[in-house]
């Protein structure tokens, strides 16, 4: 009887273990060692980073590396951003549960998923149909019902749902499209990386206060993250 019972327990343990997310530990370690340690403090952001399964947003052959803190190629010359940058960009807009956020450059959908964990509505635009058409069902399948994906030219923003509390531009641009500034709420923020993937990038924060628009070059980020000393 005892042997039977222990066998049963063992089986149950094995089955339960297999049900557990095998990447959970990696995700926890990523948040602890690379994101929290380097200054991201917002609990909502940290929780979102713990919850969103990045391995489901990367190409299958890259799944094993999904919780390394680095960008990865997703095809069409695009990358899924480095997790630390995603966390940093999310924190910098100071997201609140009632926020409506516009994202330009859906890519894999990872940034949208992180935002969707925190804010009320996420509108995301992707110009490459192949990427948009993959990201939209992926987000839906993962249960992110507050994310809306549109395949379109991000330059024009998404006027129908404007104004936005914040706009996150994930694809680097040589200029900031005027419609995005127009669609930003007073007091709203735009965060945009300046630079090419796989090269040095600088994150820039744009703030709109009445007619005044100010920019701030934030941290420089590179392929392998670093914290600036001094």
């Amino acid at each position: 009887m005892n042997i039977r019972l222990s066998t049963l327990f063992l089986l149950l343990f094995i089955i339960l273990s297999s049900w557990q997310d095998p990447y959970k530990q990696g995700r926890e370690a990523l948040v602890k060692n690379y994101i929290e340690k380097r200054g991201v403090k917002d609990n909502a952001v940290l929780n979102a980073m713990r919850n969103v399964k990045r391995h489901l947003f990367v190409p299958q052959n890259q799944m094993a590396n999904a919780y390394n803190d680095r960008p990865m190629p997703i095809g069409y010359g695009q990358t899924i951003s480095q997790p630390y940058i995603v966390a940093y960009m999310t924190e910098i807009i100071k997201p609140k549960p009632d926020f409506k956020v516009l994202e330009i450059g859906t890519g894999s959908g990872y940034q949208a998923a992180v935002l969707a964990e925190i804010v009320k509505e996420v509108y995301t635009i992707e110009i490459v149909p192949e990427l948009g058409n993959t990201a939209a069902p992926r987000l839906q399948k993962l249960g992110y019902k507050n994310v809306n994906v549109k395949i379109s030219d991000g330059y024009h923003g998404w006027k129908e749902h404007a104004p936005y509390d914040a706009i996150i531009v994930t694809a680097a641009a040589e200029f900031v499209p005027p419609p995005l500034i127009q669609q930003l709420k007073d007091g709203g923020k735009i965060v945009i990386p300046v630079g090419s993937p796989f090269m040095t990038q600088t994150l820039m924060l744009i703030e709109k206060k009445g007619k005044k628009i100010t920019t701030k070059s934030l941290m420089p980020v590179v392929f392998v993250p670093f914290t600036r000393k001094g």
């Binding site: 030219d153 330059y155 040589e174 200029f175 900031v176 005027p178 500034i181 628009i213 920019t215």
Partner: peptide, 15 residues
């Protein structure tokens, strides 16, 4: 949808 305006001012309204 090709555009070019390197470092354009944030006050600009051009396409």
């Amino acid at each position: 949808v090709l555009r070019y305006a390197p470092g354009m001012s944030l006050t600009a309204q051009t396409t």
